[in-house]
Design a protein around this nucleic acid. Structure first.
Lengths: 135, 135
DNA sequence: TGAAAGTTATTGTAAATTGCAAGTACTTTA
DNA sequence: TAAAGTACTTGCAATTTACAATAACTTTCA
């Protein structure tokens, strides 16, 4: 991080992921099983390649994700969430819940329905899933 | 809203408040008792006047806050949270908690400590407080 | 072996957004 | 009636973003 605007934890968090793209990358790796640059690139929101490369660099520099060369394909990187990245789950869940509640045209899918039914249980379930997958 | 990038609830939410400033305005009105343009303007992060005016307009257009002329001063507006705005509380809380956890230099204040002790109770307490204040 | 395809970027240019300083229109206060 | 306060708007420079093209590298396949 270059500079923080204040010592408020909300402000410091927004300094890291307060933009239209960072949390969508986190969503893709956290909830949609995407692990590589090309998978992130073909999401429906159509992120530009330079923005994607920039955000992956920032998120890696912030210790939210890490990358290593794919064993199956040495020209490819596999991205993983760190614990700091996994801990973004409740934020993602709350944003998803709010968005689904207030947008007619945003259907709740599997996770969205679980959240509506029992948010705490859904968070717990996905925390366990992510911990198993990434650590 | 002009256009949404997709029908994903996370993407739709970020279309509304996915920037470095919107949630700081929400923080100010939600947690710091700020109610007017000039109060928002003198927060420590130093938002520019044109950005503030633009974000207040967007947040009002999205139905997250409303404004009415101040009874005490007819040249002044008083901003209030709608239910849609109050429902941003869990997002704010989770972002605050994550930021405090991962930033050495972000001390937990009163609410931060409550969150760490019992997040669900803190959210419940503040929901009640906001409901009383704004509805 | 060598051409084609796939992956993770970088570069260039135009458009959009943001930051900063100044000014405006109106109201309240002294 | 002058001064201060409030909620903006405007102009301009700097930064960020979008979009297209290209590069460097690896793997696949004929």
């Amino acid at each position: 991080m270059d500079k923080t605007r204040s010592d408020c934890p909300i402000s410091c968090s927004l300094d890291v992921f307060g933009d239209k793209w960072s949390l969508l990358i986190i969503r893709d790796i956290m909830l949609r099983g995407k692990l590589s640059y090309s998978e992130f690139l073909d999401s429906e929101e159509k992120i530009a390649t330079n923005i994607l490369a920039n955000r992956l660099g920032v998120l890696e520099a912030e210790g939210i994700l890490t990358r290593k060369v794919s064993p199956a394909n040495k020209s490819k990187f596999i991205y993983s969430l760190t614990q700091k990245g996994i801990d973004l789950l409740p934020i993602i869940i709350e944003i998803m819940d709010w968005g689904a509640k207030y947008n007619e045209n945003c259907p709740r899918r599997e996770l969205g329905k679980k959240i509506k039914k029992d948010k705490a249980a859904a968070i717990k379930e996905y925390f366990a899933k992510l911990k198993k997958q990434f650590t």
